[in-house]
């Protein structure tokens, strides 16, 4: 469910990281962090995980190695075995095509997974907008869930400000 947000705006990644700690140490949950570049510490602090790497391995194994091999086997051994210079239809040269084909299949499907999972595509709508977030502005977003009392909201505001936020907004 989409809630309104309390937004802490920062101009420095070190202050941002300290603020995330502050919020979490006080028992509140950080809904999202928006940054102009990837910051590994943020992934760790928010305990974010992705299974794209596992998906890529499965694509490589089933789509690439097994899929491409089966395709080659069907076409060159079952459907139309040809005699090229006396070489057997099931030959070691398959390895070359399987190697490259596995890379092609894995790259293609991994990219598709990323775009689908992250809801990205040509013309996709930006799910959040704020000036400077792709330039030099860092944001911490905290969900204004119904369970938060006014006191909590004030507390979160204070924590964000104390952490060095140049501005705290609610929207």
């Amino acid at each position: 469910m989409e809630y309104n947000k309390i937004i802490g705006v920062y101009d420095d990644e070190k202050k941002l990281l300290a603020s995330i700690d502050n919020i979490q140490d006080n028992g509140y949950e950080v809904a999202d962090v928006i940054t102009p570049f990837a910051i590994e510490e943020v992934f760790e602090k928010l305990n974010l995980k992705t299974k794209i790497n596992v998906a890529a391995f499965l694509y490589a194994l089933f789509g690439g190695v097994i899929g491409v091999f089966l395709f080659l086997y069907y076409t060159a051994v079952i459907d139309f075995p040809l005699n090229f210079g006396g070489k057997p239809p099931l030959s070691l040269t398959f390895v070359v095509i399987i190697f490259v084909g596995t890379i092609l299949v894995t790259v293609l499907f991994t990219l598709m997974t990323f775009f689908i999972r992250d809801k990205k595509g040509p013309g996709a709508k930006e799910h959040f907008q704020y000036p400077g977030i792709t330039d030099n502005t860092f944001l911490i977003l905290v969900d204004k869930t119904p369970s938060l009392s006014d006191k909590d909201i004030k507390g979160i505001n204070k924590l964000l400000k104390d952490g060095g936020a140049i501005k705290v907004e609610e929207k």
């Binding site: 999202d32 962090v33 928006i34 940054t35 102009p36 570049f37 990837a38 910051i39 943020v42 992934f43 928010l46 974010l48 995980k49 992705t50 794209i52 790497n53 890529a56 894995t106 790259v107 991994t110 990219l111 997974t113 990323f114 775009f115 999972r117 992250d118 809801k119 990205k120 595509g121 040509p122 013309g123 996709a124 709508k125 930006e126 799910h127 959040f128 907008q129 977030i133 792709t134």
Partner: peptide, 25 residues
């Protein structure tokens, strides 16, 4: 550029997926 940038915002989840995908590709 809105069409070309695929709706990118820069949320932490997107960055994580992006980094992992980029390393795999």
């Amino acid at each position: 550029y809105h069409i070309l940038s695929f709706g990118w915002v820069g949320s932490a989840r997107s960055w994580l997926r992006f980094e992992v995908t980029a390393v795999i590709v």
